[in-house]
Design a protein around this nucleic acid. Structure first.
Length: 282
DNA sequence: CTAGGATCCTGTCAGC
DNA sequence: TGCTGACAGGATCCTA
């Protein structure tokens, strides 16, 4: 669930809280999640946190970075002097340091960065900073909305593929950062059926979809992301985009735009897919 | 090249 | 009440 807006929100929080802290130790409780040598980051001072699509890179001043791919249920939560907030969302299952806390990064001044992950799909990977952009996943990422995904490039990607448009939007090697929630909502906003072959979109539809993608992502960032499953921000609180869902998760409910049909739920590429059969025709 | 399925995980929920 | 099974889903890997 964490997609571009959620990870961007976490990035902003981590930049606010982590920068300047020194890592003093790493406790690994579930080894599969932590890849690389924890000693490489000990004594390193956090300089900056970057985002590449849905991946974060926590850069240290000693030449190493921690690549964080939180996937479905990973949470990076800071506690320490840079934060006044003490309330933690109940979506932090098990609490901080509980059964779902798999890595604890101890910082100076008594601060802590917790990695929680109910489903254990996420990974924290220690890697040299100058290898971040050439490492497997990051190198393969497609252009990203608001960054290098221009309308021209979007049109060229879309018109070159006959795969259903929703799968193109979610394919990280074609377009970086868009996941299931925002793909569903962008297609609803653009009134395009998720199963439409990408290359069947008219030039007008291409432009409309491009703008819709940017619009829903922007809304996601403004509202701090969608805390539908277990996404929380870096201070452990929830985002609000789930209050603005257009199609995602609205199966069986009346379409908010036409009120003439109920949002349908189907499976596409193994993912829950929501659309209005009246507004989004094949 | 694309399509489809299995895999990793566990909380939640439907059905009996 | 308690058990069982289906389901959710990002990315990867494997087969057809």
């Amino acid at each position: 669930m964490p997609e571009l807006p959620e990870v961007e929100t976490i990035k902003r929080g981590l930049n606010r809280y982590l920068v300047g802290h020194k890592i003093v130790g790493v406790d690994i409780r579930y080894p599969k999640i932590f890849v690389g040598n924890p000693r490489d980051i000990e004594d390193g001072k956090i300089k900056n946190v970057r985002r590449f699509a849905k991946v974060l890179s926590i850069d240290l001043d000693n030449g190493y970075s921690v690549l964080a791919q939180i996937k479905l249920t990973g949470q990076l939560i800071y506690r320490g002097p840079n934060l006044k907030e003490t309330n933690i969302s109940k979506k932090v299952f098990g609490g901080l340091g509980g059964k779902h806390t798999h890595v604890i990064i101890r910082l100076d001044k008594g601060a802590v960065l917790y990695y929680n992950d109910v489903r254990k799909f996420g990974r924290l990977k220690v890697i040299k900073t100058n290898e971040v952009t050439t490492s497997g996943f990051v190198e393969k990422l497609g252009p990203e909305p608001f960054l290098d995904l221009t309308l021209e490039i979007f049109k060229s990607i879309v018109s070159k593929n006959k795969t259903p448009i929703k799968l193109i939007l979610m394919d990280q090697e074609k377009i970086g950062g868009v996941g299931n929630i925002y793909a569903n909502d962008a297609l609803w906003l653009a009134k395009i059926h998720p199963k439409r072959p990408a290359n069947s979109l008219s030039p007008l539809e291409q432009t409309k979809l491009f703008k819709s993608v940017e619009e829903v992502l922007k809304k996601g960032i403004e509202t701090g992301g969608a805390s539908e499953l277990s996404y929380v921000t870096a201070d452990g609180t929830e985002g609000k985009y789930q209050e603005h869902f257009l199609a995602y998760g609205r199966g069986g409910k009346s379409c908010e735009r036409c009120h003439k049909a109920k949002v349908e739920k189907i499976k596409l590429g193994g993912r829950g897919t929501y659309f209005c059969p009246n507004c989004q025709k094949l």
